[in-house]
Simulated assay, not measured.
Amino acid sequence: MTSANIETARTYFQAVRTGDMAALGELLDEAIVWHQPGANQFSGEHMGRGAVFQMLGSMMETSQGTFAIDAIHTLMANGDLVTATIHFSGRRGDVSMSMSGVDVLRIENGKITEMWLFSEDPATEDAFWG
């Protein structure tokens, strides 16, 4: 199951990187719980696929379409959890961010049921998102 979960995570990140919302919708469980870090307008728990899509859409709008996961460095699995070390960035006017992060995905039956995100520089990310 570990290799299947790694493949699900790999497919998720590919969908995010290419903006494939249909594939993303297939991968996110309808009742997903998304834990967004920090103290900004997007921080907190987002419950359900619709709430997650709304948050992601607002992030793209706020970042003027520039928010992106630039690289996925390593995917590691332990049972139903997959950890990904990533790099992400965005620009909004003259404000930008570029940093490493860790995403932890809980995957059950090929669906992402829970997601935790960690940022290298939470203060910079909070300032970026406002």
Rank of each mutant, 00 (worst) to 15 (best):
M1G: 14
M1T: 07
M1S: 13
T2W: 03
S3L: 14
A4P: 10
A4L: 14
N5G: 13
A9D: 03
R10F: 09
Y12C: 07
F13C: 12
F13E: 02
Q14M: 06
Q14F: 12
A15W: 05
V16L: 14
V16W: 02
V16P: 01
M21S: 14
M21W: 07
M21E: 15
A22K: 09
A22Y: 02
A22F: 10
A23G: 13
G25W: 04
G25K: 03
L28F: 11
D29G: 15
E30Y: 04
E30A: 15
E30F: 02
A31C: 01
W34R: 13
W34N: 14
H35V: 14
Q36R: 13
Q36S: 14
P37F: 11
Q41M: 13
Q41E: 06
G44H: 00
E45Y: 03
H46T: 12
H46P: 06
M47C: 11
M47H: 07
G48M: 11
G50W: 00
V52Q: 00
V52M: 11
M55F: 01
L56A: 07
L56N: 01
L56W: 00
G57T: 06
S58I: 07
M60R: 00
M60W: 03
M60N: 04
E61A: 15
E61H: 06
F67S: 03
I69G: 01
I69L: 05
I69M: 03
I69D: 05
D70W: 00
D70A: 06
A71I: 01
I72C: 11
T74R: 13
L75K: 10
M76G: 03
A77R: 02
A77G: 09
A77Q: 04
G79A: 04
V82T: 11
T85H: 08
T85M: 04
I86N: 09
H87I: 11
F88S: 11
S89D: 09
S89H: 13
G90W: 00
R91V: 08
R91D: 08
R91A: 13
R92K: 11
G93V: 05
D94G: 09
S96T: 05
S98T: 12
S98F: 07
M99R: 02
S100I: 01
V102A: 04
R106E: 13
R106V: 15
R106Q: 15
N109Y: 00
E114H: 13
E114G: 08
E114T: 10
E114V: 15
M115S: 12
W116Q: 12
L117E: 08
L117S: 03
S119I: 12
D121N: 09
D121L: 12
D121A: 05
P122F: 10
P122D: 09
A123L: 15
E125N: 05
D126R: 06
D126P: 08
A127R: 07
F128W: 04
W129H: 06
W129N: 08
G130I: 10
G130P: 03
